[in-house]
């Protein structure tokens, strides 16, 4: 029987794009294109099973072995540090993790910097590397309003086009790290499904280079 490769796809536009690449890499799955509300699709002939999961959960599925392969943003990998192989930069979903503040903001080094973010670890590491004392305010959404309402001095968040920042009178102060979608693999799956994973990585790498 052909080895089944379990692939966790992030729901949304990015997931659609990577699915097209997986299919082109030799792992097609006609069933996934049918209109229905199913979340798991498989093609035993191609030896692949796809499932749609919340983008921030992909790394958990892969780390715990429910998925052999997945696609996760570098932001998630840096924040949660899952124990997985990071095999390829797919050069999709390109954006950056940045520090943003109200226009004209000046950092006062005499005071603790209040940082609002969803990404406490990334923000913490960024400021720890420069020895800046910060107070992290963990928020789950609408981060942009934190400095406007005086909840924080700056925010650390993902910036794609910068439109939301502009509309809220914020600007990027510095880039923390560039972000893009990464192909990740479970470490044990890499040992026991090596052939299928290698074939998939080669197929994906070729498309990244094209």
């Amino acid at each position: 029987m052909k080895t089944m490769l379990n692939i966790a796809l992030p729901k949304g536009r990015l997931g659609e794009k990577v699915l097209a690449r997986f299919e082109k890499a030799g792992f097609p799955c006609p069933a996934i294109h049918e209109t229905n509300r199913k979340l798991i699709f498989e093609n035993p002939e191609a030896g692949v099973r796809y499932f749609w999961v919340k983008p921030s959960d992909v790394a958990i599925y892969v780390e715990r072995g429910a998925a052999d392969i997945g696609v996760a943003g570098k932001d998630i990998l840096l924040e949660y540090r899952p124990d997985v192989y990071e095999l390829l930069d797919l050069k999709l979903g390109i954006c950056r993790m940045a520090v943003a503040a109200p226009k004209g903001f000046r950092d006062d080094p005499r005071r603790t910097l209040r940082v609002a973010t969803k990404f406490a670890r990334i923000a913490g590491d960024h400021y720890a590397a420069r020895g800046r004392d910060i107070d992290i305010i963990h928020l789950n959404g609408s981060i942009e309003i934190a400095p406007i309402l005086g909840l924080s001095d700056v925010i650390v968040d993902i910036v794609e086009t910068g439109t939301t920042l502009k509309e809220n009178d914020l600007e990027v102060v510095e880039t923390v790290v560039p972000i893009s979608a990464r192909l990740i693999a479970n470490k044990a799956a890499g040992k026991f499904k090596a052939e299928a994973i290698d074939a998939l990585v080669r197929g994906m790498a070729q498309q990244t280079e094209d």
Binding site: E63, G65, A66, D83, N186, K187, A188, A189, K191
Partner: peptide, 9 residues
């Protein structure tokens, strides 16, 4: 060391 069926070393 890895054994088939366990997702980590």
């Amino acid at each position: 060391g890895f054994v088939d069926g366990v997702p980590e070393s």
